[in-house]
């Protein structure tokens, strides 16, 4: 694709592809850290923080876990630029899908939906 995109992605593309022989250990480390993060997110949920803080913590851990899965199990970190560009735009549209409808209703948070 000859669409200009950030240089970091180019650099990521040039990274050496992990040869699978040496990287089974890496996959296992990722898997174990995902399990630890799962325990962590359950553990933190028992603390009574304010709603905003607990949403932020849970989302942060979930995002970290999600990016571990996407980067290493799905090899996004060494993926081709074309796919990264498409996913980049998909994520923008995902944010549009989540935040545009919410921007309409967020004025009414806490007001029941009966008309």
């Amino acid at each position: 694709m000859d669409i200009p995109f950030s240089n970091t992605l180019l650099i990521m593309n040039n990274l050496e592809k992990p040869s699978s022989t040496n990287h089974n250990n890496r996959y296992i480390i990722i898997g174990v850290s995902l399990l630890i993060l799962t325990i962590l997110t359950v553990w933190t949920s028992y603390f009574t923080a304010t709603v905003g803080v607990s949403i932020a913590i849970a989302l942060a851990i979930a995002t970290l876990k999600g990016s571990l899965v996407a980067s290493f199990f799905m090899h996004l970190i060494t993926e081709k630029k074309l796919i990264l560009v498409i996913l980049f735009f998909t994520v923008i549209f995902l944010f549009a899908l989540i935040f545009l409808p919410f921007s309409d209703t967020m004025n009414n948070v806490g007001i029941p939906n009966d008309y």
Binding site: I86, T90, V91, L94, F102, T105, G110, P112, N113
Partner: peptide, 26 residues
């Protein structure tokens, strides 16, 4: 990968609906 991009939007719609329904509920 294109299919998965579509799936992102599919589950994204669910999360979007979840946020709207939950924040609109007493």
């Amino acid at each position: 990968w294109l299919f998965l991009a579509s799936e992102v939007m599919l589950f994204g719609s669910l999360f979007s609906s979840y946020i709207i329904l939950r924040t609109g509920s007493l």
